[in-house]
Write a protein that binds this DNA or RNA. Sequence first.
DNA 1: CGCAACATTGAGACCAGTCAAGCAAAGTGG
DNA 2: CCACTTTGCTTGACTGGTCTCAATGTTGCG
Lengths: 231, 231
Amino acid sequence: MTALPISCDLCPVADRAVCAVLDEAERTRLVQLGRHRTFARGDTIIAAGAAATTFGTLVSGAVKLSAIDRDGSERIVALVHPAGTLGQLFGGTDRLTVTALTSCEVCLFPRAQFEGIAGEQPALAARLLKDTLRELDESRALLDLIGGRDARARVAGFLLALARAASTHGCHDAAQFDLPLTRGEMAQLLGTTIETVSRTLTALERDGAIRREGTRRIAVTDRPRLVEAVG
Amino acid sequence: MTALPISCDLCPVADRAVCAVLDEAERTRLVQLGRHRTFARGDTIIAAGAAATTFGTLVSGAVKLSAIDRDGSERIVALVHPAGTLGQLFGGTDRLTVTALTSCEVCLFPRAQFEGIAGEQPALAARLLKDTLRELDESRALLDLIGGRDARARVAGFLLALARAASTHGCHDAAQFDLPLTRGEMAQLLGTTIETVSRTLTALERDGAIRREGTRRIAVTDRPRLVEAVG
DNA sequence: CGCAACATTGAGACCAGTCAAGCAAAGTGG
DNA sequence: CCACTTTGCTTGACTGGTCTCAATGTTGCG
């Protein structure tokens, strides 16, 4: 979790992240406000309940957003992939905990100053709105997946979503990818249990829809079958 | 579904809706672009799949946002209450169907022109962002409610959310309110079935947490118990 | 190697879904 | 006004998918 100055030249998501809509001068200003940090799997990047003071962009790796219930159980409500944003804009406290799922790189900015720039730069505000709308869509898609579908459909739908996220180009899904989540985390995200996730993956492999390599790597061997499993 | 000119003077949500952030001149311009319409329960206000051409504000009543699966089943992903917004900004087609749950009043605007004004008015853009972030929060709260909780907790949590939405002032919940949804719609929203919703309401009443008056009206008789049921 | 974390598999219990019947309220038409 | 239909709600009995509990297998790391 070292803190270093930001350099956009080497940034792999410089063209896709929210920063991309800023002109040279404004981006320079933003770069001077922020810090580039790296986190290891399991590190807490932003803690729920704390005053919302930072806002960031995920440069590489994967993170989860989760809420902790009063009874101590964790619920994952979203994953964020590179070029996605982290942290709560507006509103005083972060409501979700942001945790690194893999080792990852992040650009972090003081929230207030980031909001200030957004207020001055309509292009940035528009981009943030667009991003938030996409997140809203994804959240509702997840809602659709979890509500009223059985375990097989949830897992299949989740695998397809990951395949899409893993594709470097937007055009079509990756044929194979690494699960950034443990079985337990998948269960939390999908509203089920570790055992059911495990059994379902076994069943999908038995049916020829996927092939597992080790416990984390998934190859989609029969995409139509996987799509059909979603219903 | 008559179309009439907009008049903000009598609008009950003039101070809370997105329009409130506009100055006199801009609001006048917006008013001239839009139309005030009324819908009856069951009417489709915006159809999913169609080109996204309209954007609106809910003035009174309640509406649902739903997605239709390929197999024809409907999934409700959110409810919208007065002062909330309707329709898809950016993106070519509406992905969700907007349906009136009660008779309701709506101000509708041509989407492109609304987006144009948002581009010129940073205050409107900021307000739209803030609203969208709140919707995102609500969507994730619903996700939290549906994922990994049993039927009793889902229904209890939903009733509490409705009590909050029904309170005219933000300070505390309404003690009683009308369900804007049928049992079937509640089931679609909560990811369960009509029968389970009905049985759960019966159980909550038996336990003294609520009292039903007719099939639609709910009085919260023991709020702590209802909160406890959510877990 | 040996521990710790994670994953798989099995057996039994239980919650909720399905199927089915009956009831209540509101509308329709003779 | 009443029979009839429609729509929505409730309740019961049964079934099945998923959760729980428990044991075993696997991976990775000090």
